[in-house]
C-alpha cells in the first residue's frame, strides 16, 4: 500500500514537471513578447532590452526554464502586472473563495445526487426513476450561462430575495453564495445522479442481492449494507472528476455574479496577458487535478478489496 502511494506521488511529480515545461514554453519562449507584456506598450526598445538583460532573458531557453522552475518550487512566483502585487500573496484569498464555492456546491451535490440516484436505481423503471431521470437530464442540459440568467431573473429581479452580485465586499455573506451555488448544483447533480442510478441498477440485479432478499433482509439493510458499497466504485471516480471541473468550470458563474474567485483571477490574467499569474494559476490547477486523481485511486482501492489484496483474490461482496 505504501509503495503504491509512493509510486502515485512520483507520477504526480512527473506530470507537474511535464505541464510546467509546456506552460513555460507556450508563455515565455518569445522573450520580446514577455518584455512588452510586463513593461507595457509605452515602453521603448531600450527599456525592454535592459529589462530582458536584467532578468536573465538572454540565456538559452532551457537555462531560463530551469531557473524559473527553481524559483517556482521555492515560492518565488513573480509579480502580477495587472494587479500590481506578488502572485504568491494574490492567489490564496482567491483560491479560498473558490474553495468555499466549490466546497459548498460539492457538499450539496454529493448527498443530493446519491439520494436521488439510489431512489431511482433501486427500482428501475418505476415512476420515481422516470421522474428523477427526466429532471436530471433536463437540468444538465441547460448550460450554466443560461441557468445563471434565469435564476437571476427569478430571484433577483422578480422575487427580489437574493443579492444580485456576489463580490462579498462587506465581508463574507452566505446570502451572496446562494445563487452561484444553485447554478453549479443544478448543472452538475443530474449527471452524478444518473451515474449513481446506473451503478445501483446494475448492482441490484446481482444474485447476492436476491439472496439477501430471500434471507429476509429489509430494503434498507440491502441497500446500505450490501448494494451501496459495490455500487459506489464508478460514481466515486465521476465525483472526483467533478473537482477539477469545479475549479475551472466556475469561471462562467464567477464572472456572471462578480464572485472574486480563482476563475475570475485566471480570466483577468488571460485577458491582460499577465504571464506570471497565468503560469502560477496553471500550475495550481494541475496540482489540484493530479491530487484529486491520486485521492480517487486511493478511495477506489479502499472500496474494492480485489485491488487492495492483489489481482488473484476472489470477490467477497
Amino acid at each position: 500500500m505504501a509503495r503504491m502511494i509512493l509510486a502515485r506521488l512520483g507520477e504526480v511529480v512527473l506530470v507537474m514537471l511535464a505541464v510546467s515545461f509546456l506552460v513555460y514554453l507556450v508563455l515565455e519562449h518569445n522573450a520580446a513578447d514577455v518584455a512588452v507584456k510586463v513593461l507595457g506598450q509605452y515602453s521603448t526598445a531600450e527599456q525592454r532590452a535592459l529589462w530582458l538583460a536584467e532578468n536573465g532573458y538572454n540565456a538559452p531557453f532551457i537555462e531560463r526554464y530551469g531557473i524559473w522552475l527553481g524559483h517556482f518550487v521555492t515560492g518565488r512566483w513573480g509579480s502580477s502586472t495587472h494587479y500590481r502585487e506578488l502572485v504568491i500573496d494574490l492567489l490564496p484569498p482567491y483560491l479560498r473563495q473558490t474553495a468555499i464555492l466549490a466546497g459548498t456546491s460539492f457538499a450539496i451535490i454529493v448527498p443530493l445526487s446519491f439520494v436521488l440516484g439510489i431512489a431511482a436505481g433501486v427500482r428501475e423503471g418505476s415512476l420515481a426513476d422516470r421522474v428523477i431521470s427526466f429532471v436530471s437530464v433536463g437540468t444538465t442540459s441547460i448550460p450554466e450561462f443560461a441557468s445563471a440568467v434565469f435564476l437571476s431573473a427569478i430571484f433577483v429581479f422578480w422575487l427580489g430575495i437574493l443579492p444580485g452580485a456576489s463580490t462579498m465586499t462587506s465581508g463574507f455573506a452566505w446570502a451572496e453564495l446562494v445563487l452561484p451555488v444553485m447554478v453549479i448544483v443544478l448543472y452538475d447533480f443530474g449527471y452524478v445522479a444518473r451515474m449513481v442510478r446506473a451503478s445501483m441498477a446494475e448492482v441490484m440485479t446481482q444474485p447476492f442481492i436476491r439472496t439477501a432478499l430471500m434471507k429476509g433482509a429489509s430494503p434498507a439493510r440491502i441497500v446500505f449494507r450490501h448494494a451501496l458499497r459495490n455500487a459506489l466504485v464508478a460514481p466515486i471516480t465521476v465525483i472526483m472528476l467533478q473537482i477539477p471541473w469545479l475549479l475551472s468550470g466556475v469561471i462562467v458563474v464567477e464572472v456572471f455574479f462578480a464572485y472574486k474567485g480563482f476563475g475570475t483571477l485566471l480570466y483577468q490574467a488571460c485577458l491582460n496577458s499577465d504571464v506570471a499569474l497565468i503560469e502560477a494559476c496553471a500550475m495550481v490547477s494541475v496540482l489540484v487535478i493530479v491530487s484529486t486523481q491520486v485521492i480517487s485511486d486511493l478511495l477506489y482501492t479502499l472500496l474494492n478489496p480485489r485491488i487492495r489484496f492483489g489481482a488473484g483474490a476472489q470477490g467477497r461482496g
Binding site: S152, G160, P163, G164, A165, T167, T169, A258, T264
Partner: peptide, 22 residues
Amino acid sequence: IRYLDLGTEVSASIQALAAGQV
C-alpha cells in the same frame, strides 16, 4: 465613497443595483 469593481460584465452591476448592493 466606495468604488467596487464588479468586473467587465455590466449585467453584474445591474444585478447588484437591483438587489441594493450598489
